[in-house]
Amino acid sequence: MTTPMVEAQAVKMYFPIRAGVLQRPVAWVRAVDGVDLAVRKGQSMGLVGESGCGKSTLVRVLLRLYRPTAGRVRFMGQEIGHCPDGKLGVLRKEAQMVFQDPYWSLNPRMNVGEIIGEPLAVHTRLSRRELASRVEGVLTMMGLASGDGRRFPHEFSGGQRQRIAIARALVLRPRLLVLDEPTSAIDALSQAQILNLLNSLRQELDVTYLTVSHDLAVVSYLCEAITVMYLGKVVEHGLTRDVFRNPLHPYTRALMSAIPQFTSAVKRERIVLSGAVPSAVTPPPGCRFHPRCPERTDRCAQEEPGLLEAAGGHHVACLSAPVQPGDPH
């Protein structure tokens, strides 16, 4: 098997809660608690889950915005989880990110040309003219006018700003593009434009996508594979069509039944989850989903399920799910 684009092994990311005069950590928020994940080259992977599940933290660890508390992170085969900042050159050049908030993700005091040109200014020694022409090229690719480089972010609509953010991320022709809720803050018609644009760009530029989203419809449209997280752990992973056709984890099923689908709620069978997501400081013992799980058994409170393969490439972490015997992941 070829080296994955980015790979996490048993990654944990704990944040301290400090208290007292000495500001000693008194407890830890276990935002990501032992996650294995591999995104193949050229793949488009979706990371889904609800707020607090650790998906945003995980991608920030994968891009070394945070140093993981434990575990290994490899980017294009190179260990990046614990190496010094100075050795991150390849990662910083080859991996870029698009953020959810189109308003605060662009510096309001820089014009669009400066914003898009910044990665080039940092990583290359292009002349002023070469830089301007690269910026213009990527603007055109995003369906923006070449004169837009002289304008400022506040002059654009949300959808246009997101195109600018994508332009900035792609100007260096990176190998990996992380999309953090790329369309959740913009209107539906612009969302369709952006999703189509992202799909066509991926084919054109041969770039790997890792999309973080709470919107399963967006993920199903953008991603070939999907990883579902709950409270810092991966609960299900597989090809998008397998997971959607045959969700194996009760949480995935509840998540899918909750998506609004243009039909009256009265007519629908919905799996309603009781209670709220527990605190990541003191996660429940055993399976973390068991207090809210409609299918829980006595075993679930004691035994922690591992992520096991159920069918070709389709993994699930549930004690009740049908998994292939004797094949720990």
Binding site: L65, K93, W104, S105, N107, E118, V122, H123
Partner: peptide, 23 residues
Amino acid sequence: PFVEAARMMGTPATRIMVRHVLV
């Protein structure tokens, strides 16, 4: 996010401080 973006693309700290934060 725009500061996070700058860090993620490897912009040196001094440049981030002046061009993104200070202004």
